[in-house]
């Protein structure tokens, strides 16, 4: 959907509404009334959309475009290619498809896009980590665009956000705030009804920072008043240096899944090896 004509825009909006109406939750109402209601709503929506367009369209050209920085304009182009279907024309969100992006900030965009969670392949309980669609530059442009649209939390500059941080203090904070979901070794864990806290192994400094700051999906938000930027850096240092950088002292770590894999190992390795040995010992030869 690269074309930018008003008709197309209105059409897209209408299509969205139509599909919503078709799959809508109209339950026990009679078919006739439902159709009537649908028609009325469709009409109202069309009027609204058209009206809104006529009201805002000149303003959009007049106010929006000049205010966008160059990066923001680049970001808008990318947005219109990949995000507009679910998040709507001006990032105001499309019901049942995608939330509004007004005020989520650059941090949220960077987290979602750089970890490949957005754009989503399909609607599901939880967006999964994938290879990212956009490169760093494009991600930054998208983030810039959303930031300029509605403001919101932003990440500090730089790739390495843990310089001078204290992993020991970060460890204490990690155990109180993070390990209940992401587990002691950062391998992630299950949440209710198919949701999960992802593994921290592939996460970058900026992604961890952004996740704490914005609380993506079901993760609680850890704003700067709760965990100061320094504390966030400490946590990042603990995750990146201690959990990932510090190799295990006791040999192969069995995935750091705790006693479950240890129990599996004692049967698959210990008992199996010893049963084979006993077969050989008691065998005749």
């Amino acid at each position: 959907m690269t074309s930018d004509t008003p008709a197309d825009r209105r059409g897209g909006r209408t299509r969205g509404l139509l599909s919503r109406l078709r799959s809508g939750r109209s339950g026990p109402r009679s078919r006739g009334r439902r159709r009537l209601g649908a028609a009325a709503r469709l009409l109202a929506a069309l009027t609204l959309a058209g009206g809104a367009y006529t009201v805002f369209a000149p303003g959009l050209q007049a106010q929006d475009t000049p205010q966008l920085s160059i990066a923001g304009q680049e970001g808008k182009l990318l947005y219109d290619q990949s995000c507009v279907t679910c998040h709507g024309r001006n990032a105001q969100g499309v019901q049942d498809r995608g939330p509004s992006l007004i005020g989520v900030g650059a941090a949220s965009v960077e987290f979602q896009v750089s970890s490949g969670r957005m754009p989503m392949a399909r609607q599901e309980a939880q967006a999964e980590r994938k290879p990212p669609v956009f490169n760093d530059e494009q991600t930054r442009q998208l983030a810039q665009y959303v930031q300029e649209l509605g403001g919101g939390p932003q990440l500090p500059d730089g790739r390495d956000l843990k310089q001078g941080a204290d992993p020991a203090r970060g460890g204490q904070l990690y155990r109180v705030n993070c390990s209940s979901c992401h587990a002691f070794g950062g391998s992630g864990g299950a949440l209710s009804s198919g949701k999960y806290a992802p593994s921290l192994r592939p996460a970058s400094d900026r992604q961890i920072y952004a996740a704490m700051l914005t609380g993506p999906q079901n993760m609680p938000v850890f704003g700067d008043n709760q965990l100061t930027p320094e504390q966030k850096r400490d946590i990042i240092a603990y995750v990146q240096e201690t959990l990932k950088g510090d190799k295990d002292s006791g040999g192969f770590n069995l995935g750091r899944y705790g006693p479950v894999t240890e129990g599996l190992a004692i049967f698959l390795v210990g008992i199996t090896a010893l049963v084979f040995a006993s077969l050989w010992i008691a065998g005749k030869s």
Partner: peptide
Amino acid sequence: DDVSTGGQ
């Protein structure tokens, strides 16, 4: 204001 909306 130490705990953001959606925070714990």
